[in-house]
């Protein structure tokens, strides 16, 4: 077992993840199905929220992964800038669509949950708003990747965008917090349910979160492999044309 940087070698990455992928995927499936089935069928209704509390097993994990995926992209971008390992840049690229889908799930479940609870599909609640902005950041990041033909240029530009975007995403988070309190004098609609959920809801939630994390890892492994292969193929095709 050498240093962690050995896995920056694309071949090594593919062989290692090939070995890990079935295990991670199986675990992800078990945890996801387990957590969601447990949550959906075997937990009681909340006395205030009724059965809508069951949405928590989708909403909280996806929201968590939406942020963590961006964090992972940020770290991967930094590694690319500092050490210039191609796998790192490609992993960031691979993670972006996953993060975007997670953000979308969080937004959709949030809206569906908000409809019966708050009486409106969309409330300009600071958290909802920040997630919408995060979604826009994901879109911009993916669009920039797609728009640039040269791989290294694209990796450089998107990683810088990711860094700058992270700072602005954080700023927006605070700005949005400030902005809505300015309108509503303190949020009357708190979404902080995870702070006071009872044990009955807590354990299936944990399993479900673990499932989402594993799912994310499995997807990033798989998609990074695809990106590595796509890059290699472009290089090979370019070499063929040179002949």
């Amino acid at each position: 077992m050498g240093s962690i940087w050995e896995y920056a070698n694309p071949k090594k990455f593919i062989t290692t993840t090939d070995r890990l992928l079935p295990w991670v995927s199986a675990l992800a499936l078990v945890a996801l199905v387990g957590g969601l089935v447990w949550g959906f069928f075997f937990t009681p209704d909340d006395y205030k929220q009724g059965s809508t509390v069951k949405i928590i097993y989708l909403h909280v994990p996806s929201a968590l992964m939406a942020i963590n995926a961006w964090m992972m992209m940020l770290v991967a971008s930094l590694i690319w800038i500092v050490r210039r390992h191609h796998v790192s840049a490609l992993a960031a690229r691979a993670a972006a669509p996953v993060g975007a889908v997670m953000t979308l799930i969080a937004l959709i479940t949030g809206a569906i949950w908000g409809q019966p609870m708050w009486g409106t599909w969309w409330e300009w609640d600071p958290r909802l708003t920040s997630f919408l902005i995060l979604f826009l950041f994901y879109l911009g990041y993916m669009a920039l990747w797609a728009a640039i033909e040269d791989d290294d240029t694209a990796a450089d530009l998107t990683s810088i965008l990711c860094l700058v975007g992270s700072v602005f995403a954080l700023l927006s988070r605070y700005a949005v917090n400030f902005w809505n309190q300015g309108l509503h004098q303190g949020a009357s609609l708190s979404m902080d349910k995870e702070e006071n959920v009872a044990d009955v809801f807590y354990y299936p939630l944990l399993v479900s979160i673990a499932g989402f994390i594993l799912l994310f890892i499995a997807l990033v492994f798989l998609r990074t492999q695809t990106e590595i292969r796509a890059r290699r193929m472009r290089a090979l095709l370019a070499r063929e044309r040179m002949k």
Binding site: D45, I55, I105, I108, T109, W113
Partner: peptide, 19 residues
């Protein structure tokens, strides 16, 4: 699921579909 069946089911269906 009581009166919220629609909300719960639709969020599960949509999320699972997306995943």
């Amino acid at each position: 699921l009581g009166k919220y069946a629609e909300a719960v089911l639709s969020s599960y269906v949509l999320s699972i579909l997306l995943v």
